[in-house]
Amino acid sequence: MQDSFIEIIGFIAAILTTAAFLPQVYKTWKTKDVSSLSLPMLLLFFIGIVSWLAYGFLKNSPSMIFANSITVVSSFLLVYFKIKYRE
């Protein structure tokens, strides 16, 4: 029972933190303005999220796998946009 409660907290955190990141991806995609995005920060963030995803698989944590799978895609898109739309 306690493990289920912990996973529920994990899913709530996963949904909130993942959802918080999506408006930036959408705004960047629509405006193609990447001037305020730091490529080194995006790369470090992407590597960190990939690491969290691997950790989630190793810990067999559905909430971590769910959140980080979506955030890997989102952060990859921001890196892609930063490179594609840079001036």
Rank of each mutant, 00 (worst) to 15 (best):
I83G: 05
L39V: 11
K32P: 07
T17S: 01
I8C: 07
S38N: 09
F11E: 03
F76Q: 01
S74L: 10
S63N: 02
K30G: 09
T18A: 00
I47R: 09
L44W: 14
V79K: 02
P40Q: 10
L78Y: 00
L77T: 06
E7K: 04
S75V: 13
Q2T: 14
I12M: 09
I47W: 11
L39E: 09
K59A: 12
P40L: 09
V72S: 10
T17G: 03
Y80A: 08
W29M: 11
G56F: 03
Y85R: 02
I49G: 06
S74V: 08
S4V: 15
Y80H: 10
S51P: 10
K84F: 02
A13M: 02
L16V: 01
V73C: 09
K82W: 05
A13L: 04
S75Q: 14
F21Q: 10
L39D: 07
L39Y: 11
I65Q: 02
R86K: 14
F46S: 15
L78T: 00
K30A: 12
I15W: 05
I83F: 06
I49V: 15
V34L: 06
M41C: 13
Q24D: 01
L53R: 08
A20D: 03
L44T: 15
I15G: 11
D33T: 05
L39A: 09
F11D: 03
G48L: 13
K84P: 06
I6F: 10
F57M: 06
Y55E: 06
V50W: 13
G56R: 04
D33C: 03
I70E: 00
S74W: 04
F76N: 00
I12V: 11
N60C: 13
Y80K: 10
S61F: 04
W52C: 05
A13P: 03
V79M: 04
A14P: 02
N68T: 03
K84T: 07
S63K: 05
N60D: 14
T28K: 04
F57H: 08
W29P: 07
I47N: 10
E87S: 14
S38M: 08
Q2A: 14
K82S: 05
G56E: 00
S61C: 06
F81D: 01
L43K: 10
S75T: 15
Y26P: 08
F57D: 07
S36V: 12
K27W: 02
L43R: 07
S63T: 02
D3H: 14
A20G: 10
T31P: 00
K84Y: 07
F5A: 15
S75M: 13
I9G: 12
L58G: 05
I49Y: 06
S51W: 12
N68Q: 05
L43T: 13
E87P: 15
K59R: 14
V72Y: 03
I6L: 11
E7R: 09
P23S: 01
M41V: 15
S69I: 01
I8G: 03
L39M: 12
T18S: 01
F21H: 12
S74D: 02
S61P: 03
K82R: 09
N60A: 15
L43W: 09
I9Y: 10
V73W: 07
A67M: 00
Q24W: 05
I15R: 02
F81A: 04
F81S: 01
